[in-house]
């Protein structure tokens, strides 16, 4: 249901729902504004925003869990501290971008996983910056 064509696929959650059977007009009618649109709230650059599905637990300490939906904005330039999507040797991975000993590295948020240093990998590229993760509690 989520797509780049955000204007067409709004998820509508009514702010006010009035159902008056007959007789008097609702006093709130003039004050009803619009629906909350999560796409509008979560996404500021629809052309460069992509959705990905997380598989695995290496980011668990940051709150990103297995099967979560993450929203990635490719137009943002990654800064240290950001959670990012990187391509390492032909694989997508999600890690936190950090500076360690004056060098950029990618850190997992789970002590069972090693850090990746940029200089140990030939083919490493930052694909986009994670802006939100969506977790279901059901």
């Amino acid at each position: 249901m989520l797509s780049s064509d955000l204007s067409l696929k709004k998820v509508k959650i009514p702010l006010l729902s009035d159902s008056i059977s007959a007789g008097f007009p609702s006093p709130a009618d003039d004050h009803t504004e619009e629906n909350i649109d999560l796409n509008e709230y979560l996404i500021s650059n629809p052309c460069s925003t992509f959705f990905l599905r997380v598989k695995g637990d290496s980011m668990i300490n940051s709150g990103i869990k297995d099967n979560d939906l993450i929203i990635v904005d490719k137009s943002l330039t990654a800064k240290p501290g950001n959670i990012i999507i990187a391509m390492i040797d032909g694989e997508f991975t999600i890690k936190r971008l950090c500076i360690k000993n004056n060098e950029l590295c990618l850190k997992a948020e789970n002590y069972n996983y090693p850090d990746f240093s940029f200089k140990n990998h030939i083919d490493i590229q930052i694909w986009g910056v994670v802006i939100y993760s969506i977790h279901s509690y059901l």
């Binding site: 959705f51 990905l52 599905r53 997380v54 598989k55 695995g56 297995d66 991975t93 999600i94």
Partner: peptide, 13 residues
């Protein structure tokens, strides 16, 4: 897919 939530790319953490 970039438009169908069921077929979006997976990312191994």
């Amino acid at each position: 897919s970039t438009t169908d939530i069921k077929k979006i790319p997976n990312i191994m953490t």
